[in-house]
């Protein structure tokens, strides 16, 4: 038995490189030594630009792909040591919600069949019992039961995302990874889905990993936020600290980018230069140095360690004291 104080998810030194075909030793260094924990009923935000490895990290955590190095402990058990049968039972406790709900549902299956499939796969009662569970869950996510006779192509994005959420929660998971769950939705629908997720996580005591490229979408729902850049976590802190007193220059740049209306183009443009480099050839030293306004010789040579600078606040920057101003 694990103690109650132990976090639900613990990842230590996760590394995942994807070798490039036909290029010898070159590899996309997608996740490059990530350590993090997610507590019970805690929501951790994971923010970063495309290609920073946040989706890969998510898939490592739910054991959808296996890491090259490192370990994932879920509820006190080593995920990577699990055998086939055990793993399938473990699948129930961990779920994934996708960016594009239309792609996450088989276009040739009615929604009700898509909802039924996972219950059948885990032998959850008779067909009638399953239907009852599905109808109860549809009520939770605010979908009219009549809708599930349709095919995915006949529903709106917001409705489909609710169905995808319902399907994930039907198995009563403890941990749900939401991979940009609202970025394919319109603003008015996005807010509905974020409210729904926030509501459901309280009612079902869920631990969530919320992945996004938009810090603003995370503010409402997250307890803590981890900022990722080129395969590494550069800052991790409670959500309000990320907004009020970000220490890493990249966090400040992301912050400004999502608050363009308040900060203005010029100020936001000054905080970061250029574009994210390729994860195949990450810059030496601090990965962020070529784009950083504070970079100096140390940054170019030495990789900054993830330093604990306050309770619950970690940052990996040689200049975190300077960047406070």
């Amino acid at each position: 038995m694990s103690s109650a104080a132990r976090p639900l998810v613990e990842a230590r030194n996760l590394v995942k490189h994807f070798p490039l075909r036909g290029s010898g030793r070159l590899a996309v260094r997608s996740v490059d030594g990530v350590t993090l924990t997610i507590g019970r009923a805690e929501v951790l935000g994971l923010v970063g630009e495309s290609g920073c490895g946040k989706s890969t990290l998510a898939r490592l955590l739910i054991n959808q792909i296996r890491p090259d190095r490192g370990e994932v402990i879920m509820d006190g058990r080593d995920l990577l040591a699990m055998r086939q049968g055990e793993l399938r039972r473990f699948r129930r406790t961990v779920q994934l919600i996708f960016q594009n709900p239309l792609a996450a549902l088989d276009p040739r299956m009615r929604l009700i069949d898509s909802l039924m499939a996972p219950l059948a796969a885990h032998d959850t009662g008779t067909r009638e019992e399953c239907l009852e569970m599905i109808h109860a869950m549809l009520g939770e996510v605010g979908i009219d039961p009549g809708l599930v006779e349709r095919y995915p192509g006949q529903c709106s994005g917001g409705q489909l995302q609710r169905i995808v959420i319902a399907r994930a929660l039907l198995l009563r998971p403890q941990f749900v990874v939401c991979d940009e769950p609202t970025s394919s939705l319109d603003a008015s629908i996005r807010a509905q889905i974020l409210n729904l997720l926030n509501d459901l996580r309280r009612r079902f005591d869920l631990s969530l990993l919320m992945i996004s490229h938009d810090l603003r979408a995370l503010r409402h729902i997250c307890d803590r936020v981890a900022v990722m850049y080129l395969g590494r976590i550069v800052e991790m802190a409670p959500v309000e600290e990320i907004f009020q007193s970000p220490r890493h220059p990249y966090t400040r740049a992301l912050n400004a980018a999502s608050l363009l209306d308040e900060i203005g183009l010029d100020a936001a443009g000054r905080l970061v230069q250029g574009e994210p480099p390729s994860p195949v050839h990450p810059p030496p030293g601090c990965h962020f140095h070529p784009r950083c306004p504070l970079a100096d010789e140390t940054c170019r040579r030495q990789v900054p360690a993830l330093e604990r600078i306050a309770e619950n606040h970690e940052v990996s920057c040689h200049h975190w004291r300077t960047s406070t101003s």
Binding site: E49, H213, A253, A256, L260, D266, G269, V272, E275
Partner: peptide, 10 residues
């Protein structure tokens, strides 16, 4: 990417 957005708009 969000950090490139401000540059293009600028």
């Amino acid at each position: 990417d969000v950090t490139v957005q401000a540059q293009i708009l600028g």
